[in-house]
Design a protein around this nucleic acid. Structure first.
Length: 240
DNA sequence: ATGGCTAAGATACTTAGA
């Protein structure tokens, strides 16, 4: 079973690209961020969506029935239960440097942590994925020295990621590939793909981690015409 | 070192992204 996270930066602009990418990669569950519209759309068999006009917006779409669903934070965080797996899809607030928005970002994560803490993370199958707008470690940024002091890479943000992992979540990509320096985001202005960031993560509990067959960041969509500035992360798990 | 781009919404410029 393949589950993916993809910040599409407008589903209006990217609908065909996303649809084709889902088909060519045989994706079963896709978690989208930055829909940027309230316009209706459908992908796979069914979607659970929380959106708003112009900004933000998240959707989880699946070929399997969505057994339960809940909005945790409007247009930014949704919970779905699919194949008895708890899936939390987030588009974290970016925040400005130590501003009111930064406080909101910390508060956003506190709400997420509070929600996932209700689950027994040693036993439950749970996936927390999406655009975290956090760079965890030096290897997750093109140049740690150059990016120091920038929002996404502040000590408080890196500590949030530490906190999530201390709860019993694992960074699936990093668990499988401790030394790979690949990124899920490049600014549009960075035409040479020299200044990448890893902002999109798939965190999983141990019962999921042990079933991972493959995980990859697919850079290919980033090279298509009118791409998103993010590129998808895909996890293949053995669900037999 | 700077500026470089893209998208949405309301109108040709602003806000936001990170």
């Amino acid at each position: 079973m393949k589950i993916a996270t993809f910040n599409v930066n407008s589903i209006n602009k990217r609908y065909e690209l996303v649809q084709k990418w889902i088909n060519s990669n045989s994706i079963d569950i896709i978690c989208l961020q930055e829909l940027k519209t309230t316009k209706e759309f459908s992908l796979l068999n069914e979607c659970f969506i929380s959106n708003q006009k112009q900004f933000n917006g998240v959707a989880t779409c699946s070929i399997f029935p969505i057994q339960a669903s809940k909005t945790l934070y409007p247009a930014r965080a949704i919970y779905t239960k699919i194949n008895n797996i708890h899936i939390i899809n987030i588009y974290a607030i970016l925040g400005d440097l130590y501003s009111e928005k930064f406080e909101k970002k910390l508060n956003f994560y506190n709400q997420i942590i509070k929600f996932i803490s209700k689950f027994d993370l040693t036993k439950e199958k749970l996936i927390l994925l999406g655009d975290f707008n956090i760079i965890h470690k030096n290897i997750d940024v093109f140049d740690a020295n150059q990016w120091e002091g920038h929002v996404t890479f502040l000590p408080e943000e890196r500590e949030i990621m530490n906190q999530l992992l201390s709860l019993g979540l694992y960074d699936s990509y990093r668990e499988l590939y401790p030394n790979k320096k690949e990124f899920s985001f490049f600014e549009y202005r960075d035409k040479k793909f020299e200044r990448g960031l890893r902002l999109d993560y798939i965190l999983v509990t141990k019962p999921i981690l042990s079933k991972i067959e493959n995980i990859y960041i697919d850079i290919n969509p980033r090279h298509l015409s009118t791409p998103s500035d993010h590129t998808p992360v895909v996890m293949d798990i053995n669900d037999r």
